[in-house]
Design a protein around this nucleic acid. Structure first.
Lengths: 183, 183
DNA sequence: GGTGCCATGTAACGAGTTACATGATTGG
DNA sequence: CCAATCATGTAACTCGTTACATGGCACC
């Protein structure tokens, strides 16, 4: 039940609608917990049934009504308890690595191009993270305690993407050498 | 359908039983694609029905009979086609990051201990990977082409774990500072 | 007049997790 | 005698993905 906790993590600081949440999951929490709109709506329904959150219908003119979700006192307790419990590192499931693992079965250039595509994607994410860092976390000494925690997660993202790019470079270089050897 | 491809990736070099596969997934392919025994049996049944693999029953005395699975010519083609198709980087879903994100909601020491636990786990994996590197890939210049591809995936694992440890250190250090400030 | 945004969902399916079930053999 | 290893699976459930459905308003 971890999507549930990711949703609470977001709602706990700022109550909002399912629609808003699904947009938030494009950034912020979404950087380390992915979820589609459909999943979010389904999970919100369940969380409301279990009384972790409560909904208030906000009538709107010239827009569909929205449901504003708030974390209940019970939900808050459950969330804090969940943080307190130990958990195991998520295990890896990476298509690209399976492909590289048996990459000798396809022409070199195919894997090289794929690695370059992935490199570009990671570089892209990296630049997004760097922008966020500059905008919100540039003076890390003066950050509020709360923001220091959030910053730590951003640091993780920065590291992850930096490392992914570096590995792609390694792998691309290896392929380049193998291509040279073939000539 | 990516577990399917991970299974084929393993079977394509060495046919074996479901039981053997589930053990292999504790290492090798398993380092970058996790799967339980139950999942593996289910998927093998499906793959056989789709004719990606074929089974040969090997009668054994003093042990239960086993089914030896081989990748068919059709399966091989499908696998190679899959490698050729582009894919997107897997998106992150990490409990620990959700916990750190709202980590200010619990006493400092709880998160610190959790980070230390995770650090130890990553260090452990790292040492496993290093052993494998020393044993099988120490003279990287003289590796067969095939093994160079496999080595690239090991490099990824080494990097990933190294980076995870480094980030844990960063995060632990931050918490230490916050604890000092509290005094 | 079409695209995109706001805002809600349902339905079907595929993938992953947890628990249970069976049964012989080997080794301490 | 107990635990581990070999070897197979079923069943129930949760989580994640893909596709579909509705409908008004704002902006170009």
């Amino acid at each position: 039940m971890a999507l549930a906790h990711a949703l609470i993590a977001s709602l706990i600081e700022e109550p909002c609608s399912g629609y808003d949440l699904s947009k938030r999951f494009g950034g912020s929490v979404g950087f380390f917990w992915n979820a589609s709109q459909q999943q979010i709506y389904r999970e919100l329904t369940k969380l409301e049934a279990q009384n972790w959150i409560s909904a208030e219908v906000i009538p709107q003119q010239s827009r569909p009504d929205k449901k504003l979700f708030r974390v209940t006192e019970f939900g808050r307790k459950q969330f804090i308890e969940w943080i307190t419990e130990p958990c195991e590192p998520t295990d890896l499931r990476d298509d690209l690595l399976v492909k590289v693992f048996r990459g000798y079965l396809v022409p070199r250039h195919i894997l090289r191009e794929e690695l370059q595509r992935h490199r570009a994607t990671h570089l892209n994410k990296l630049s997004v993270y760097r922008d966020i860092e500059q905008q919100y976390f540039s003076e890390s000494q003066q950050l509020a305690v709360k923001d220091q925690f959030v910053y730590m997660t951003l640091r993780r993202g920065l590291r992850l993407e930096t490392d992914a790019v570096a590995w792609c470079d390694e792998a691309i270089e290896l392929l380049r050498q193998l291509e040279v050897d073939q000539e």
